[in-house]
Structure formats: structure tokens, C-alpha cells
Design a protein around this nucleic acid. Structure first.
Lengths: 212, 212, 212, 212
DNA sequence: CATGAATGAGCTTTCATTCAT
DNA sequence: AATGAATGAAAGCTCATTCAT
């Protein structure tokens, strides 16, 4: 039971979404029940339907709000992290890890519930991920270009972005197992691992199984 | 309708699991219905329950079979890939990407359905992932140790393993968008990105936002 | 179809229980289906589950309501039947036969469905029966004690109570075959049969197969 | 697993019925499953159907065999218990209590499973009970007649028989709670309670609430 | 004589969703 | 603005029963 009686619409919506994020994170989309969400939000089911239309609408609202927050944090950091691409990438990654550390539920909803859902939802999730990937790829490409060499192209940058985002994603689990590690530390390690390696590759150092 | 009439038990079980992997991959655990699986397998529901006990039992059977296959391929390659750790890592990653390329459904089931499920299932999935992570961390550690320097310890190896596995994971999506790319190519790129970078780091080259 | 549209909860519950008693009496617990009960009550199945939780919960509710009614009638009569134990026993038996005559279904549910059911249900039924047995045994003991002789003890009273209750129980069938017989008449006959006999025994008259 | 391989039909049937009586007694008709019975009997389900036709046929076979045994014991004792009706009644009751003491499962099946079943089964159970009631009523009537008085008629005898049989029935529970009590002792007590009382009543002693 | 394989039908239960107030 | 009452539809699961060998 959160608040009661005569709450203006927008505020009620946010309360409902707050609760829904928690419940979806804990139970998953299908296992979550609108009953439980309504009860935890301290209102009746018809209100949920009046404001959010359907279970899927409710989930979409959660998704959008949390995705917007995450993407905003990410892009905001990338925009203000400094001039050099690597600094901006670093700032963005840091923002990401900090967001996940602070809003675990939001992250779970965004990350682990995309399959088994409707077109609309899958699209929304994919859109957020694509936004992040594009941002990263852009930074990577800028870093490459800046370094003068153009051995690597768009596709390579996309590849690196996927690898980076996947690594970051997986490292959220590692973080959950190492609560003492700060987002800053994690970010620094990841940058070292990937960025330095990428730099060397650009300089022509190539690994191959034939001559390792 | 796969096979018909009077099929011995073990064979039927495999048929059912074959179909179930497809359906679970397409719909997700909760949205999948035993009815649909039975119908696609060309048998009646009671057979599914007779042989696999419950919907969860069926899912577990899928999970176990596919996880075993994947882990076996991965570890088999790691064992026979050569003497040097990086060669073995390369072989293992290659086996992984090849497996995913060939058994997309299996991979989806293994990868995207772990949350919102019962203890038993979560355990099974986590176990498979942990096996792979441990294998990778071992290889990474061996690579580090071999190189003579011991700046990096177990925790670092674990970190790198998470990053690598997460990157590989995410790259399966990239592969799905680039059907022309071979598993070999993907593997090579990833090794270059990570391994070379790691080598440089070991040699003392450090990146930091303060002095990039 | 009993009542329709927008009935407050408690009233609906009683309607449902009313119907359920009839159906359980006719079919027995296992053979009764919630579908049939819902349909006869003129509502949909989910209402039954919303209010009574489960088929077993529904049966328990029937059991408790009817058992309470019967035990209350029995004990109420025993309490107000007069001073002398035999008068009170007579009043209680009369109340029992009158109850059965008027609520045949309730009696069937209470009496014939105890086995093959869950612990909770068996406990509820056994509890009601035990309450009645204890009441009867108490009256019998009082009658014995009052008569001055103490040849008979607690165990004897318990034995007599079982015999009496069993006789009464069986006589409900006899009543069903003799609709013209009033509860009063039946009660009187039973009292004559048992109470007088018990009195003689207390006075020392003993029957034995050796010397009949 | 009782016996195996190539057992002649009649013997197999008896084995199946033996097991079925146990299972029906423990679980009740509906809750008992043919699967469990077949497994405990050490044979496959189709054999059960081949020999006993259906679940109901199986139950009927159990019922008939056990009812025959009980009625035979009862009537046998009544026939050989001596000349005087009360001696024969005593012998018959003794046979009844001894049967129940020794074949608890049979008694449970005969006694507590009659409702909720099909016409055929209800008829079978009712038939057995009626046979016993008739026998008892006959003895009671003989006792009455012999005593010279004819205040009491057929209906009265039937009433007494119902009371007696119900008392005996209920006393089987009392016996279950008093394992040290012998069938002989129980029978003697019951005879004392009822027969002596009946005798007094015949002699004109009448109880009534008006003048107790 | 005997059975593993197979199923039609029906059960209890749950849930997203809407109506009447 | 808000809710208690109500339901259609479907899911998981079980069981008595039969077929093919």
C-alpha cells in the first residue's frame, strides 16, 4: 500500500510503474500477475487498466521509462565526458555500470525479459539496445578514425561495439558477485582490456592461430 | 508430425525434446504450451507427461541435453586445440560460435530463459554457464602465467572470462545480422580484440582516463 | 440458477455452499465437479475459487457449516432438555433425528464422505463426531452415576455412547424408508430400547450366552 | 510384486482382488488408481481389464467377495449358534466383530465406499446390508415371538435390527480405539445393552419423557 | 498369456480483462 | 476517481481405457 485516495493521474501512473518494475524483475513478465501489482500499489485492478490499458501496456511503460533513463544516462555521460572518444566511452560505460549498480530491478527488466514477448515489446527492447550499440559503435569509429588508420570500417566498429556491450552486460553478473568492486574500477578494467587491445591491432599487430 | 505409431520410449523422448527445444525457443517457457509441443510432435499430451513428468521436467530435459552438447563441444575443443592456452581458447571459442550458428534454437533456450524459472532450472542453467566461465578463466590464467608476469590474479582472470563470455554471447546477435560471416572469422576478430589487448596490459601498458 | 448479478460476497458464499451441499450429497466429493456446482449456483467457476479457494476448501466450508449446525442443535437440546440426564439425552436425540429429517443432504455430506479425503477434512469430520460422542457419553455417565451404582465407568459410558450414536446413525436409513414415522416416535423407541436395558443391567441383571 | 509368469486365470483374479481391497480401503474408490493396483499386483494394466472388465467391475468383484465372506460368516454363526434366538444372535454378532477385527480392509471397503458410486455398486452394497438386517430382524422377531408377547411386530423388529446393526457398525470404531478388547467382550456388552432392554420393554416397562 | 505404447476426455486451477455501481 | 463482483478462455495435469505386438 503506497499512497491512497485522490492522487492525480500522472503520479498514480508512476507509482504503478514503480511497483511493476519490482514485480516484473522478481517474477518475469508471464509469471507476474496484475493482481499482485495492483495490490502492492495499493489500488484496484481496474485503475491499472484505466491508466495503462493492459498488462502488456504496463510492461511497455516500465520498459520505456527505464530504457529512457538508462539511455539518457549513457548518452549524457558520453556527451559530457570530454573531447577524446575514449574519454567519452569511458564516461558512458561508467554511467552504465553505475546505473545497473543502483537500479538492479530496472536492469533486470530491461535485460532478461525480452524474449517470449510480443512484437511491440521486443521492438522496444531491441530499440534501446540498438541505441546503445550505435552510440558505442560511433565512439569506437571515432577512436579509430582519430588514430589516422582506416583499416577498420563501420562493420568492425559494430563488431567491437557488440563485444563491448556484451562484455559489459556479462560483467553485471560479475559485479553482483563482487559487491566491493566499484563501477569505476570495473569500467577501468574493461577499458584497459578492450581499448588497449584495439589500439595495438590498429597498429598492425595481428594474432592468428597459425602464428600466435 | 514427426514420427508415428509405436515408437520405442527413448526415441520418442528425443523426438519430444527436439520439438520442445524449437517451441521453447520460439515462445519462451511460460508462453509455450504443452499442447502445442505435443501436437507438433505428433503425439498426445499424456505421452509427454508419461515420459517427461511435467512441463518443467520437459524444459529441464531440453536444457540438460543442449547444455551438455554445448559444454561438450566447448571443452572438447579446448582440450584438443593445441598446447598453447591461446590456441585452446581460440579453438573453444570457435566451437562455441559454430555450435550457436548451427543450433540457434538450442542456444536461445539455453541463454534467454533462465530467469523467472524454478530453482532447479536456474541451477541447471547457471551450472552450464559456470562450467564455461571456469574453463575460460583457466585458459586466461594459464595465458597470463605463461607470459611470466603475475600482475594479474584469479580475480582478474575471472573478470576477463566474464567479459569474454559476455562478448561472445552478444556477438551471437551480431552473427545473426551478418549471416555471411563465418564462425572462424568472428572468433579471430574476438581473439585479436581481447587477447592482444590483454597482452599489452600485461606488458605494463595501462590506460587511464587521467592520461589517455 | 439461484440468484443473479451483483450479489455481495457473504450472500454469494452461502448460495454456493447451499448448492455444494446438494451436489456433494448426491455425487460424493470426488465425483462432484466444481463445474456442476458453479453452474447450479448460477455463477462462473472463478467465483467459486475466489471465495472458497479450492474444491477442498469448498467442501470444508460445507462440512463446517453443517457440522456446526448439527452439533449446535444437538448440544442446544441437550442443554435445555430438562434436569435429568435421560431427559436431556432424549431431547438431544430428538434434535438429531429432527435435523436429519429436515436436512438430509447435510447429513449425507457429514456422514458418508469422511474417508478418502485429506487430513484437514477427516479431522473436521472426526471432530464433530467426537463432540457428539463426548456429549452422549457424558449424559450416559451422568445417568449411571445418578442411579447410585458405579459398576460402570468411563469406558462403559463411551461404549454405550458409540452404540447409541451408531444406532441413531443407522436409524436415519430406517427413517428414510418409513417417511410416516416422526422423529419423536423414533427417538422414543430408541430410548426405550437402550435406556431401559441399561437400567436393568445396572440393577444387576446380566445376560450371558452360558445362561441366557 | 506378488507372483509371476503363467498363473492360471482364477488365481490371478484373486491376487488382483487381494491387492485391490487394500488399495480401495486405503484410498477410496475414486482416489484409487488402476495403475497402482496393477503395479502392486505385479502385472500390467491390460490384464486387470482382461479379467475384471473395468475399474467398477474390479470394485464390484472386491465388494462381492468380501460381502459374501462377511454374510457367510454371519449367517453361518447364526445357523450354528444354538437353538435359542438370542444365542444365535449372539453368535452372529460375535462372528461379525471377529470378521471386522481380522479383515479391517474388507470392512472399510464394504462399509465406507458405497456412496458416490454407480447404481450397480450401490445395489451390491445395499444388498449385503439388507441381508444382514433381515437376518437380525428375523432373530429379533423370533425372540419376541418366543417370549409370548406380540406387542411388537415386523416393523419393530426391523427398527431394532437397524439399531443393532448401526450400533455394531459404530462399535467397530470403538474397537479400533481399544485394541485390547476382544470381539467376545464387545459382543457380550452389546447383547446386554440391547437384549435385556428389549426384554424389559416386552414385559411392559415403558420409558417416556413425561414420566421418566 | 502378457505388455509397452498411446489417447480422449475431463479435472482443478489461474489469469487478464470488464461490468455495474 | 475508484472498486467489488464477475467471467471467458485456456493451461497443466491425470486417469480409465484400448491398440498393436
Amino acid at each position: 500500500m503506497t499512497g491512497r485516495r485522490r492522487v492525480p493521474r500522472h503520479e498514480r501512473e508512476q507509482q504503478i510503474i514503480d511497483v511493476a518494475v519490482q514485480v516484473f524483475a522478481k517474477r518475469g513478465f508471464h509469471a507476474a500477475s496484475v493482481d499482485e501489482i495492483a495490490e502492492l500499489a495499493g489500488i484496484s485492478k481496474p485503475m491499472v487498466y484505466l491508466y495503462l490499458d493492459s498488462k502488456e501496456g504496463l510492461f511497455l511503460a516500465c520498459l520505456r521509462r527505464e530504457a529512457d533513463r538508462l539511455v539518457a544516462a549513457f548518452q549524457g555521460a558520453a556527451a559530457t565526458g570530454g573531447a577524446a572518444p575514449e574519454l567519452r566511452l569511458h564516461a558512458a560505460l561508467l554511467a552504465f555500470f553505475a546505473f545497473v549498480a543502483e537500479h538492479r530491478d530496472s536492469w533486470v527488466v530491461l535485460h532478461r525479459q525480452a524474449s517470449e514477448l510480443s512484437e511491440a515489446i521486443a521492438t522496444a527492447v531491441a530499440g534501446a539496445r540498438r541505441a546503445v550499440l550505435a552510440e558505442v559503435a560511433g565512439l569506437v569509429l571515432a577512436g579509430i578514425t582519430e588514430s589516422g588508420d582506416s583499416q577498420l570500417d563501420d562493420e568492425d566498429a559494430d563488431f567491437v561495439a557488440h563485444a563491448l556491450v556484451g562484455a559489459a552486460d556479462s560483467l553485471t553478473d560479475w559485479m553482483a558477485d563482487h559487491p566491493d568492486q566499484s563501477p569505476e574500477g570495473v569500467t577501468l578494467r574493461l577499458m584497459n582490456m578492450v581499448w588497449v587491445g584495439m589500439g595495438r591491432v590498429l597498429e598492425g599487430e595481428v594474432w592468428s592461430p597459425a602464428r600466435p
